[in-house]
Simulated scan of single mutants.
Amino acid sequence: MAENAPISSGIYSLFEQFGSIIKIEKDQPIFLEGERAEDVYLIQSGSVRINKDTESGKLLTLRIAGPNSYIGETAVFCEVVYHSLSANAVEPTKVLTLNRSLLEKYLTSDSERMMEWMKVIQTHNLKNQTRFRDLLLHGKKGALFSTLVRLSNTYGVRQENGSILIDYPLTNQELANFCATSREVVNRMLNDLKSGQIVTFNKSMITIHDLNYLRREIECDNCPLTICRID
């Protein structure tokens, strides 16, 4: 898994000095939607899937957070003290956990760390805005195409023939969760892309042969690569 850019040493030092290490086994929850938000988490190793349950009963996956990512961050400086999302370990994962009130205290007393934290939140907000834009403007197709583009920017490995291998295994159901739709709908769209020689897939690995096609279909705004990612 590709790691995020190094995080600021100022905020990291708070987690390192005052936080506690927790190990989570694969497929186990770190926190669940509706639980009281007492802590914020910094992933040290492994990966975590961030999900939202929809009213229709479908699962919407918002991101896959890897090392150096914060999760549970939406509760900081927020009057809503319950998690609005769920976090589940995709693989054995280790996190540093820090009490939310303690983090707020140290951020409030240090303007430099506060600015660093604001940049983190702003980046997360921009990622979510662009994801929802693609879903609202282009429907399920836009959600899938956007997900494939973001996966290529996060885990893509360029091949000698110019194609891009997404070096992260995903089932069609997991792709469907990114689009809040059914596996059958994603199957049809992927088969259409395969027929058009846009993508090919081998088991759970996808190779993109025409990334520009996907970007044109969702009227890509050429967002910075720090924003157009799945993590």
Rank of each mutant, 00 (worst) to 15 (best):
V157F: 08
G139Y: 07
G142Q: 08
F145I: 09
L136N: 13
T93N: 01
R63K: 10
S182C: 06
I11M: 03
H209G: 09
S182T: 15
C220P: 05
L214A: 05
A75N: 07
Y106R: 07
S69E: 12
T74L: 09
M1C: 04
L170D: 02
R183A: 03
L225V: 11
N125A: 12
D39F: 12
R133W: 01
K52G: 00
I24R: 05
T93C: 06
V80Q: 10
I64R: 04
V199K: 00
R131M: 11
Y155D: 04
Q44K: 13
L60T: 01
K26G: 07
L211Y: 04
L170Q: 04
R158H: 12
R158D: 12
D53F: 02
V185A: 14
R133L: 00
L102N: 09
K119I: 12
K119E: 11
D221L: 15
Q122H: 11
F178S: 02
I22L: 15
S84P: 04
N51M: 01
W117F: 15
G66F: 01
G139F: 05
M118E: 15
A37M: 04
K23Y: 12
L225Q: 11
A37R: 02
R113A: 06
E33Y: 00
L102V: 11
D39S: 14
E104Q: 10
L136K: 11
I166G: 07
L60D: 03
S20Q: 15
R131W: 06
T154A: 03
L137W: 05
S20C: 14
H124F: 10
L107R: 06
D192E: 15
V185C: 09
T147E: 06
D231V: 05
S8W: 08
D231M: 05
N128M: 13
G162D: 12
R63I: 02
D210K: 06
F31G: 07
S56H: 02
P6S: 02
D231K: 02
I218W: 04
E55Y: 11
S182G: 08
E55V: 08
H83M: 08
R229W: 00
N99K: 14
E3S: 10
E219A: 09
T108S: 15
A75W: 05
K52Y: 05
Q129Y: 10
G162I: 14
S45A: 10
L225D: 14
I166M: 07
K203V: 15
S101L: 13
T61H: 01
D221G: 13
H124L: 09
G10P: 00
K140G: 10
F201Q: 14
R36D: 13
E73P: 05
T171H: 03
A87D: 01
P169M: 10
I24Q: 08
Y82E: 12
Q17S: 15
A176Q: 01
Q122F: 10
D27R: 12
L42G: 01
E35K: 08
S146C: 11
G34M: 06
S182K: 04
M115Q: 14
L107M: 06
K58T: 00
S9F: 13
L32S: 12
G139E: 11
G19D: 08
M205K: 13
N88Q: 10
E55F: 07
L32T: 10
D221I: 13
S86M: 05
R183W: 02
T200S: 15
F77I: 09
H124V: 10
L144S: 01
